[in-house]
């Protein structure tokens, strides 16, 4: 079972004018086919299950191991200090109740620059606690200087992130 070499047949040369008419028929018969366009903002096509884009972070399970920072091929992830428990209005739910995240002693969390992220999904794969994960959400256009998402913003929904 190996590949065989085959000389291709060159088709007959078309007759002038007749050939053009045939081409016109071949092109023109698509006139009555249904268009394939998706009218984007109104109708959103079904998104495949494995499609990934916007990165989220669940601060309660991040242990600050910096693995995601090391694996990111574009160095889009930087670790940033975030004193969760000192922030007002944002309570971290852990198994032991609303309190400081004991696992993350250094209080460092990833901060993602979407301007350079290539959505390679490596950070999601390597994270030992599934704290960082990618979702189907993809409508997050930003202006030039506001691609960087701090850990606080990564934990929120897109609409709550004020840029």
């Amino acid at each position: 079972m190996v590949a065989t070499i085959k000389e291709i047949k060159i088709p007959k040369k078309p007759i002038p004018i007749i050939g053009s008419l045939e081409t016109m028929y071949n092109v023109g018969r698509f006139m009555f086919k249904k268009p394939i366009t998706t009218q984007y903002p109104e109708e959103k096509g079904e998104i495949p299950e494995r499609f990934r884009f916007r990165i989220f972070l669940s601060p309660e399970s991040c242990i600050g191991c910096t693995l995601c920072e090391q694996i990111c091929p574009n160095h889009s992830i930087k670790m940033e200090v975030w004193e969760v428990e000192k922030e007002q209005g944002l309570v971290v739910e852990t198994k032991r109740g609303a309190r400081e995240n004991l696992q993350n002693k250094r209080h460092i969390y990833p901060d993602v620059n979407f301007g350079t992220c290539t959505v390679c999904r490596n950070c999601e794969e390597i994270c030992p606690t599934n704290a960082i994960y990618l979702t189907h959400q993809f409508e997050d256009a930003r202006t030039r200087n506001s691609f960087t998402y701090s850990p606080q913003e990564l934990a929120r929904q897109e609409d709550d992130v004020i840029k």
Partner: peptide, 22 residues
């Protein structure tokens, strides 16, 4: 064609033609 001259993957387990033309 590399697929024929130095088969990689399983290109030696399937049937296909290498078309040539003069």
């Amino acid at each position: 064609d590399v697929r024929k001259d130095a088969p990689y993957l399983f290109y030696d387990k399937v049937n296909f033609d290498i078309p040539i033309s003069h």
